[in-house]
Nucleic acid binder design. Structure first.
Lengths: 331, 331
DNA sequence: TTGAAAGCGCTAACAT
DNA sequence: ATGTTAGCGCTTTCAA
C-alpha cells in the first residue's frame, strides 16, 4: 500500500494522496501493527529491563534513567521484576526473547544468574548488566564501587571512635553483598581491628532481613555488642533502625547506623542517616546508552565496564554524637 | 511443522518425534516468536501498565500487584511512566496499541487524559483506570476514597485542637487532588471552621512542590499561619517536613503534619507521621483481575468501580504534642 | 501421525 | 507516483 510510504515518510508520495491517507488514518483510528513490522525486520525497537526489586527506590531511579534514554531514542521499555529470584528472572528473559526485544538490561538476581546469562549470550542478543557484575559473563557492565563505598562507611565510623562495628549484609550470592563485605573488612584491617564473626550477619536485602539481623546483634552479650552498624543497603538500614527503635535504642546516641544507598524520602525528614549514595539514575542512563550503541552501532566492540563512584553523605551534624558513650557500651 | 504441535502440546505426536524435536529445541536454543504468534492470533498475552510516577512508592506497589496477577496468569507486563504528562501518556498508549497489548491499566496523568482515553475506548481495547477516576470514561475503575481519607485526616487534626489547618494539595487537574480538597473542606465545615483561601496551596504532586508550598505557608503573617498541615500525598508530606525543618520548626511540636499515603521506608524510622494509608498493592491486583476477566471472559459487562477504603495510621504516641501551643501560635 | 497450503500485517524490491 | 509480489514465523485447516 501507499499507506506504508506515508507513515514512514518515504517521500515520493503525491501531496494529495498523502492528505487523503492521513485523513483516513485519523478517521479509522488506524495504528500500525508493530508485530508485523517486527516480524519482517527482525527488530522491534523494544528493550527489556529486568530489576531485582521494583519496590526499591534505587532500582526505581534506574528505571527512570533507562526510560528516559529509551524514549528519547524511540525505544519502548518492557519491565520485569525478578524479585531476587533466579527462576523468575529466567522466565522473564525467555518471555522477552520470545517477544524479540532488541536487547536487555539486567540487574541479575544473584551469581546463580550466570548460567541463564551465558545462554543469553550464546543466542547473541546484546545485554548490559546493571549494579551487579558477574564474572565470566561477557557483557557491558555498569556498577557502583561497592568495595570502596563500604570501606568509606566503615572508615567513617572508625574515625568517630567506634571499634566494635557490625555489618548487616545481604545474601552472599549477590555480588554487591560480597563486595561490601570485602570493603568493610578492608577498613577494619587498615585500622588493625580484628573482625568478629559474630558481628557479621547475613540476611536478605529486605527490610525484615535487616530487622532480624539487628535483633540478632542486640541479643549478643553486652560486652560483645556493637556500638555501630554498617547496613549493606537501604532496606537493611531501615530494618536495622526499626529493630533499634523497638529496643528503645536511639540513633545515633545509643547505636550509630550508616548504610549503603540513600533513602531519599526517609533521609529528607530523618536526619540521622549517614549513607553512601549511588547515582542510581546514571546507572540506568549509562547502561541504556551502552545498549543502544550496540544496537545501532555496527562493528562489535569488546565489553566495557563502568564503575560509578558512590558519594559519602554525612547526615548527622553533630558527629560527636556518634562517639560511643560508655553507658551505651555497657548496655 | 510438527514443532508447533510439540510446543503447544497438541497431543497426536509420536513420542519418538517429540523427543527429537525437544532435543533440537534445546540444542539450537530455539525460542518461539511471539510476534508471529501475535500477528496470527490477534492477541499477545501482554498487558500494559501506565503509571504517572514510577518513583512514587505508591505506584511501585501497584506495579508489584499487577505483575503478580499477570505473571500468575501467563501475561507479560509492559510498563510506561507518564511522569504526570498527558503527552507522554498519549505516546505510550499509542506505542502499546501498536504493539497490540491485549489490554491496559492506566493511572491517568490528569483530567486532560480524557480525550486520549475516549479514543482508546473507541478502538475497543479493554482498559482499567487505577487511582484516578475520570468522569465520562466508560471503563472499570479502581480508586481509593480520597474524599473520606482527607476528611479523616482533617478531622483528626481538628479533634486534637487545631483550627488553622492548611492544605498542601496537588494539581487540581488530578482527580485525587480535587477530591482530597473536598474532603478537607467537608471536615472544616462539619466543625464550623471557615476555610481560608490563603491556607490552601496548590502545587505539583512532587517533593519540591510540597517544599515550596510549605514555605509559602510559613511566609504568612504570624497570626494567619497554620498550626497544622494536611499534605495531599506522600511526596508533598515529605517536602513539607523538609521546609519546616529548614525553618527550624519541629514536627509535631511547632507544626503538626499529616499526609495522604503512607511512606513505608520513612515512617518506619520517623515516627511522627500520621497518615491515611491506601492498600496500594490491592489497587494493582484488583485492577489486573478486572482486566483479565474482560480479556478472558466472553460477554461484555457494564463497567465496575471499586472504591478501596484508606486506613488512618496515627503514628505519634503522644497525641497531646499535636495540640497547638500558645507560643507556636504566635510564631 | 505428519505434511502442505494459506494468511495474519507489513515493507523491500521490483515493476509500471 | 503508485501498485505488485513475496516472505518474515506461526498455526488452522485440510490432505495424505
Amino acid at each position: 500500500m501507499t499507506v506504508s510510504r506515508v507513515i514512514n515518510k518515504h517521500a515520493r508520495v503525491a501531496e494529495a494522496t498523502r492528505q487523503r491517507v492521513e485523513q483516513a488514518i485519523a478517521e479509522l483510528g488506524y495504528v500500525p501493527n508493530a508485530l508485523a513490522r517486527g516480524l519482517l525486520h527482525g527488530r522491534t525497537r523494544t528493550i527489556a529491563l529486568i530489576v531485582s526489586d521494583v519496590s526499591n527506590p534505587f532500582f526505581t531511579q534506574i528505571v527512570r534513567g533507562v526510560e528516559d534514554v529509551a524514549q528519547r531514542n524511540g525505544y519502548t521499555v518492557i519491565l520485569g521484576n525478578s524479585d531476587e529470584s533466579v527462576e523468575k528472572e529466567r522466565r522473564y528473559i525467555h518471555t522477552f526473547l520470545s517477544n524479540r526485544v532488541d536487547g536487555l538490561l539486567i540487574a541479575p538476581a544473584s551469581s546463580a544468574s550466570r548460567s541463564t546469562l551465558e545462554l543469553l549470550a550464546r543466542r547473541g542478543r546484546p545485554f548490559v548488566l546493571i549494579d551487579r557484575a558477574l564474572e565470566g559473563v561477557n557483557a557491558d557492565t555498569v556498577i557502583g564501587d561497592s568495595v570502596g563505598g563500604a570501606r568509606t562507611l566503615t572508615q567513617h565510623l572508625i574515625r568517630l571512635g567506634h571499634r566494635r562495628i557490625a555489618l548487616v549484609n545481604g545474601p552472599l550470592e549477590v555480588p554487591t553483598a560480597r563486595d561490601r563485605q570485602r570493603g568493610y573488612l578492608e577498613a577494619l584491617r587498615e585500622y588493625g581491628i580484628d573482625p568478629q564473626a559474630s558481628l557479621i550477619v547475613t540476611s536478605t536485602y529486605k527490610r525484615d532481613g535487616g530487622y532480624r539481623a539487628a535483633q540478632q546483634l542486640l541479643a549478643l552479650p553486652p560486652a560483645q555488642r556493637p556500638t555501630a552498624i554498617v547496613a549493606s543497603n537501604n532496606f537493611l538500614g531501615v530494618g536495622t533502625i526499626e529493630a533499634l527503635r523497638e529496643a528503645a535504642l536511639a540513633v545515633p546516641q545509643d547505636m550509630a547506623v550508616v548504610c549503603f544507598d540513600d533513602i531519599e524520602l526517609a533521609s529528607a525528614i530523618y536526619p540521622f542517616l549517614t549513607v553512601v549514595a549511588q547515582p542510581a539514575r546514571a546507572f540506568g542512563t549509562i547502561a541504556a546508552q551502552f545498549l543502544l550503541e550496540r544496537l545501532e552501532g555496527s562493528e562489535p566492540s569488546p565489553p566495557r565496564t563502568v564503575v560509578l563512584p558512590p558519594e559519602l553523605i554525612v547526615r548527622v551534624s553533630c558527629g560527636a554524637a556518634l562517639k560511643p558513650r560508655v553507658d551505651a557500651d555497657r548496655r
